[in-house]
Design a protein around this nucleic acid. Sequence first.
DNA 1: CAGACTATTGCATATTTATTCAATTTCTGG
DNA 2: CCAGAAATTGAATAAATATGCAATAGTCTG
Lengths: 169, 169
Amino acid sequence: MNPAARKQLVADLIKSVTIASQEDLVKALKKKGVEVTQTTASRDLLEIGALRGKDGSGRFRYILGGTTSSLSSQSSRSKNLLLSVTASGNLVVAKTPPGGAQLLAGQIDQAIASGEIASGIGSIAGDDTVMVVAKTATGGALLAKELTALLDGDPVKSAEKKTQKKRSR
Amino acid sequence: MNPAARKQLVADLIKSVTIASQEDLVKALKKKGVEVTQTTASRDLLEIGALRGKDGSGRFRYILGGTTSSLSSQSSRSKNLLLSVTASGNLVVAKTPPGGAQLLAGQIDQAIASGEIASGIGSIAGDDTVMVVAKTATGGALLAKELTALLDGDPVKSAEKKTQKKRSR
DNA sequence: CAGACTATTGCATATTTATTCAATTTCTGG
DNA sequence: CCAGAAATTGAATAAATATGCAATAGTCTG
């Protein structure tokens, strides 16, 4: 598994289950089929801006910092900004670390304006998600490839095309 | 010095200067005339709910959790957050009370990440509207059902299929 | 393809933080 | 004041996290 996608998974995990320590995280990742050591867990947590403290019940827990805390070190390179790209119909959904979506959307809009990305017509950003609209009704897949090629990083996930290996719970 | 007053001082310190470690805190307290060991520093920080992570410049820093990031569990799914769910093509539009969209979108993204919702790929939120993208070009209706089943008990509205109840609002 | 450069990772270890335990102080009700 | 209970603290240590370094894999350039 590639590092950016793993970081996305780490972010999702600490949002959805209580991760009290890095060893916890290592085990949770293993359940998802991702094997790393505490070393990498530590780096991932630092890089996505995770914080550690005690929750209301007095147990340790990692959380994701607010949109302000985590991003400045990655602002220049879009590579760290782009965690995953998924296409569906005329849309592409791109995920970023928390707070990174506005920045990524700006770069995408610029690329559209300059013609570097030919198959997109615009984007809109939330906190960690950017939606990009393709020119044609089925242009999402092509647009996803363009985005990936431009911004570097991960292989494109196609939500429609092939069989998923994953079984849900 | 009395413990409560010292904790207040600790809180003030980590708000006003960069405290990168507990040894830092011990030194900062010493400058203020308060001598304690790392043991007490650790306890004080935990008791006031301080969090540790890297700041924008990549340096370690303690912060206070209250403002941005409470560690309390955010897992409650408030049903009154979801006012309506409507599908069209590969999209679902979910409405919330004013200001509730970000919260709902966060819950939806978690559900997607965890596999509870299998037919969605991502969501984006405004103020009272969340847009969710389905995996397939016509997957909106299915996704709407999944969302409704997960977050609420109300029937799904379809914008495309047939006669509507007139209760849009 | 070679060579050079970059990115990613784990191991070993340094650094940092949390906790156990015992000593000491403070509080409380007679 | 006194006996006991509770709170507070530090020293030692356990536990957890971060990092230097080297190995490996991937990428680029000619």
